[in-house]
Design a protein around this nucleic acid. Structure first.
Lengths: 175, 175
DNA sequence: CGACCATACATCGGCCTCGATGTATTACGT
DNA sequence: ACGTAATACATCGAGGCCGATGTATGGTCG
């Protein structure tokens, strides 16, 4: 998820770590902040894997900056990760949102459609949070107001996303 | 999050690991599956911390089971974690849902209200995913349909949850 | 009667993440 | 002149999570 965000932001323009950090904080930080001690090793990993290169520039404001730029391999890797997301990226809303934030970088509308269809299939699987044996329990049956909340909120989210997905798939198909 | 789920499920009744695993899978598994190799060490940690004890029973169907039971300290610890959640449990929907699933075990309605109010405060902070400098960008301004989706879905979720929160807070206040 | 699946638990190595801490510079208020 | 905050990067140790793999047993189905 972190690596995807790094690749995604660098895909558009080279950035140095500090700005990258603030972009990531804006994207996912209110929900799941990323520590600096997680970001910098992640950058190093990607560098070691040949997905990005660093160029040291004198610091405009403070210490010298390392401007990060994706290599051609890095650009391919982002597109690959967008086109072939793991199951977690599809099911976990946090990770899914990161993927969505960069899905525009997949040039082929058919590839974008394929990814959205995977999410659609996941959302259409009937799932609950609570079961009576194998039978999913509906919000109306639960007497605990907090568990009712979970089901209510999840249902509203699902409904909104299904609507958006169908609209977007239709317009991708039309285009 | 995992530990909270273990404590929460065991709070109501002693269970053995396998059943516990299936309960957790139902609660969070469709979004974020928990590997067995994560669950069993987590149980051990809690045992080592004196929060639960194991009793070996001959297996009804297969191998012998370890029936897990919370100690008095374990019960206190669940209530403590519910009453004083970390920031992540408030902001991350996945973790928040786990907390909500067990919030009923907090006997005091005032304590429940306090937790819901923390979530309310978080949801009322104006946040976006994308910024133009410091100014949050609204869904209507984004031309990328995928980023529009993120904002649309997040807004729908937020609206639904705010409605539920206000209703629930009102009824807790009335009770 | 043999294959396979569900039950039930466990370990190991590798990797990722986090909190704490450190270094250095510039800007700003007071 | 001095403290504090923001900029900008980095390391380290502790601990958590995962995939792979292992060990049993009992039930089901062809």
């Amino acid at each position: 998820m972190l690596e995807l965000a790094i690749l995604g932001f660098l895909y558009e323009a080279p950035l140095h770590g500090y700005v990258l950090r603030r972009r990531i904080a804006a994207l996912t930080g209110h929900v799941r902040p990323v520590a600096e001690s997680t970001l910098y090793p992640a950058i190093k990993r990607l560098e070691k894997a040949g997905l990005l290169v660093r160029a040291t520039e004198p610091g405009a404001v403070a210490a010298p900056r390392h401007v990060l730029r994706l290599t051609e391999e890095g650009r391919r890797e982002l597109r690959r990760r967008l086109a072939e997301p793991g199951r977690r990226e599809i099911t976990d809303e946090n990770q899914w949102f990161v993927l969505l934030a960069f899905l525009r970088h997949l040039a082929d509308p058919a590839a974008q459609t394929a990814v959205l269809n995977r999410r659609l299939a996941f959302l259409e699987e009937p799932t609950s949070f609570f079961y009576d044996g194998d039978r999913p329990i509906r919000a109306e049956e639960v007497d605990d107001p907090f568990r009712q909340g979970i089901l209510t909120i999840a249902r509203a989210t699902s409904r909104a996303e299904l609507g958006w997905l169908r609209d977007t798939l239709a317009s991708l198909d039309g285009a």
